[in-house]
Amino acid sequence: MVSLTRRYRFSASHRLHNEALSAEENARVFGKCNSPYGHGHNYIVEVTVRGPVDPSTGMVMDLGVLDHAVEEEVLHRFDHTYLNLDVPDFQGKVPTTENLCIQIYNLLRARLEPVRGSAQLEKVRLEETSSNSFEYSGANGSHPEKAKREKKDENRPIARN
């Protein structure tokens, strides 16, 4: 099994604001991200798919298929938008990068299901800035790297030679 990761970019603005909270609470919870007109980021999204290498192509997944799916489901939907107003997904949901990361995972999961071949969507990692990033592997997702590490730590002695 091989994991393949491809990186894409989009730019969008958002405002972190919860209608259920008072103005003071919103200001306290969200700080400058609550600024009423919103603010923007250059987001970087990393999409990881995992599967066996097809012996006839040497590939986990056709990159054209992945690019097309990300273009249609993610970039077209979110690039150069104000997430709060332009994207129905965030009506009634705060467009934090956590929620955006989960939404991108769910959109790609649904889109790739019928076309993915034997590769599976493994993880979406979303960078809001070079200092902040978020990862989501599904509701029951366990990062394979972590699962593998734990399994190996349990079962295998350390080789020293």
Binding site: R6, A159, R160
Partner: peptide, 18 residues
């Protein structure tokens, strides 16, 4: 010494495999 855990190979900045 140790054991190999992962090979990560970047073909470009925007594409890598593990």
């Amino acid at each position: 010494a140790g054991r190999l855990h992962r090979i990560r190979l970047y073909e470009t900045d925007d594409l890598y495999v593990d």
